[in-house]
Amino acid sequence: MTPLAAAPALLHDALLVGAILFALGLVGILARRNLIVMFLSAELMLQGISVSLVAWSRHHGDFGGQVLVILVLTVAACEAAVALVFVLQAFARTGRLDAAAWQSLREATLPRAVDHALPASDAAPPRWPRLSTAGVEPAADEEAALEREHV
């Protein structure tokens, strides 16, 4: 590859890395329920933007992109400080870092999110001894077993 083609290749690869980081952050902020992990995902998106800005800055030979990344760092610090105060107060009210703990703020037309078949813990389920069958198996109420008292 000639050196002439090297710079657009570096631009392409760096922009691709930035796009991947941004998409990962988007998936995290959409999917995760923990407020802190959602903020980490937002920071991941900011990292993707920073990589793209620096790539363009190098491509154009201009410091504007790098100055913008410094401002992104500043805004991220402010955002983390203010947002973590609200996260801590939300935790003080509900006792959970759960985004779904605030689902009473949703639109009136939206259904309530209820978790089904939630594992109680990551510990391995206990192994009970296998007993020989005796008597009649009682009918299980499956709906009641799936419901939890809170989300």
Binding site: A23, V27, A31, R33, A99, A100, D115
Partner: peptide
């Protein structure tokens, strides 16, 4: 703010399939 052990909300996701598809479309 972390409770002891893994909280229940750390073991489930909101719509993991739709979120992954959205990220993949964007990417």
């Amino acid at each position: 703010a972390q409770p002891s052990g893994l909280a229940p909300y750390d073991r489930v996701s909101n719509e993991p399939l739709l979120s992954a598809v959205a990220g993949a479309v964007l990417l």
